[in-house]
Simulated assay, not measured.
Amino acid sequence: MGGQQPASYVVSPALDGDPAVIFVPGLGGRTRFVDGWNAPGREPVIRRADWSEPMRVPPVEERGTALASLVAHSGATEVVLVGHSMGGLVCLEAARHLGHRLRGLVVMCQYPPHRTPLSPLAELPDRALAEEIEAPPHIMDTVALPEYARRWRSEYRLLNRYLESDPRPVLNAPVIAVGARDDASSWNTGILHDWSEYTTEWLSVHMVDGGHQIVEDLPSETIREWAGKVRG
Rank of each mutant, 00 (worst) to 15 (best):
G2K: 10
G3L: 12
Q4A: 15
Q4L: 09
V10G: 06
V10K: 10
V11C: 03
S12H: 12
P13A: 08
L15V: 11
D16Y: 04
D16K: 07
G17Y: 02
A20Q: 06
F23C: 08
P25A: 11
P25H: 09
T31Q: 09
T31N: 15
R32S: 13
F33A: 09
V34A: 07
V34F: 11
W37C: 06
N38F: 08
N38E: 14
N38K: 10
G41I: 08
E43T: 13
I46Q: 06
R47F: 05
S52N: 02
E53F: 00
P54T: 13
R56E: 15
V57T: 14
P59S: 13
V60R: 00
V60I: 15
E61Y: 01
R63Q: 13
T65L: 10
T65M: 06
A66W: 00
A68D: 08
L70E: 14
V71C: 08
V71P: 03
H73K: 10
S74Y: 03
S74H: 04
G75Q: 09
G75A: 12
T77W: 00
V82P: 00
S85E: 04
S85P: 04
M86R: 02
M86S: 14
G87L: 02
G87H: 04
C91S: 15
C91G: 14
A95T: 07
H97I: 04
L98S: 06
L98D: 11
H100L: 11
H100N: 13
R101F: 07
R101W: 03
L102C: 12
R103L: 13
G104I: 03
V106C: 02
V106H: 00
V107G: 07
V107F: 02
M108E: 12
M108F: 01
Q110A: 11
P112F: 05
H114G: 10
R115F: 02
P117D: 08
A122F: 04
A130M: 10
E132M: 10
E132H: 14
E134R: 11
P136G: 12
P137A: 12
H138L: 10
H138R: 09
H138I: 10
T142K: 02
V143Q: 13
A144L: 07
L145Y: 01
P146Y: 01
Y148V: 14
Y148Q: 07
Y148K: 00
A149W: 00
A149R: 01
R151V: 15
W152D: 14
S154N: 12
R157C: 05
L158R: 03
Y162V: 05
E164I: 01
S165P: 06
D166V: 13
R168A: 14
R168T: 15
R168G: 15
L171N: 09
P174S: 10
V175D: 07
V175P: 03
I176Y: 03
A177N: 08
G179D: 07
A180L: 05
R181P: 01
R181Y: 03
R181L: 12
D182C: 09
D182G: 12
D183M: 10
S186D: 07
W187K: 06
N188E: 14
N188L: 02
D194G: 10
D194R: 15
W195K: 04
L203H: 12
S204W: 05
V205Q: 03
H206P: 02
H206D: 12
V208Q: 07
D209M: 05
D209I: 03
G211P: 09
I214V: 15
I214T: 11
V215M: 11
L218V: 06
I223G: 09
W226T: 13
G228C: 08
G228P: 08
G228I: 04
G228E: 14
R231C: 13
